[in-house]
Design a protein around this nucleic acid. Sequence first.
DNA 1: ACAATAATCACTCAAATGAGTTAGTTATGC
DNA 2: GCATAACTAACTCATTTGAGTGATTATTGT
Lengths: 208, 208
Amino acid sequence: MPASIVLFEDNDRLRESLTYLLNMNGYTVMGSYGQCSEASLIARVYKPDVVLMDIDMPGISGIAGVQMIKESNPDTAVIMYTVFEDDEKLFQCLCAGANGYLLKKTPPAKLFDAINEVLEGGAPMSPIIAQKVLSTFRTKQEVNKYNLSLREKEVLQWLSKGYSIKMIATEMDIAFDTVRSHLKNIYQKLHVNCGKEAIAKALSERIV
Amino acid sequence: MPASIVLFEDNDRLRESLTYLLNMNGYTVMGSYGQCSEASLIARVYKPDVVLMDIDMPGISGIAGVQMIKESNPDTAVIMYTVFEDDEKLFQCLCAGANGYLLKKTPPAKLFDAINEVLEGGAPMSPIIAQKVLSTFRTKQEVNKYNLSLREKEVLQWLSKGYSIKMIATEMDIAFDTVRSHLKNIYQKLHVNCGKEAIAKALSERIV
DNA sequence: ACAATAATCACTCAAATGAGTTAGTTATGC
DNA sequence: GCATAACTAACTCATTTGAGTGATTATTGT
């Protein structure tokens, strides 16, 4: 049985090309849409094996689209198909439940590979994207990008747990003002102006 | 120029088969080893494009092996090649800097695909593995554990970027005191006492 | 119609924090 | 032996923040 596919893509020309291309290559395109408003219904009724989802569409974005589809029919694999390669959108899509993430510059042959890969339960991603995903696990290596001393790292770790200066001083058994002194140096090295920024940076860049 | 490859695999038969197979298919196997003790040196001297790394080897494990190679020559892409598919080993490898993760049941054709994929900067993974990796991003379910209102979530998002109250007020175009009012409610709902704790909780539990 | 909730804004007060400055001690490396 | 850096500590001053209290408006569900 050929894999059933539904497309969401607001560019008419591209949508039609994709439909043609997929139908010519052994897939069954059950529907193709220029926006996501009916995504929930479509997922519930057609129960497609795969959805190709653009992000930038009029009305509801593809990110919300993934959510709608995954809520309506979690078995449908959703592959993002977009020009965006920024971390923000990427991780929003992954959190929303996307099963794959392809950039639009992907050649058709790789697109077919990707569809076959999700059908096997995999997670096809363009190289740059896969890179970003894996790099979220990397610890080490860049850790010393900011040249923090041992003691400074220790202070930053406590800070990142939400501890106040007073509590950090107690934990590390040093004076209140010493902690403040370390913090001042940390802020300089991280190029931030306050503890909240430092925590945000430390946790999002995993430098603790 | 054919891609240069180094193998680490303690099973002699498999190691020789792989060497033969890769050499027959346009790759240059520069070396193959039954254990990791010389991994650092090998990476520094040969600077291979790709390393295929087993996990379970006598002496130093492949997980430590990845670390050694990545420290010696970060440009070498390391693909894990193992029978293990448990979360523990998988994420240890990813944290150590692995660029891909293949199960040994992978057919040769896919192995070649994978090598080509890392050479393009990608992250080849067996379907089951890719699934596990993506599932770490899925949020949902617990998102509303703290019952934050829309506006409160918005404030918390800005806060988590390290913004001051004044800056948040400007961004959201509401009064300074309104932001403080929202924050007070957020702190209550999150059971924290200050913005730093809130950021720590928000970022570590991914509730933003 | 009424209760509950969300969102808005204001005021006070005490505590926490950031910025600036200075300085003593101990390692480390050249 | 001397420069450099890390770690330690103290002081001041202005700003930011948390906690308490109170209030208005709009929306929603019963």
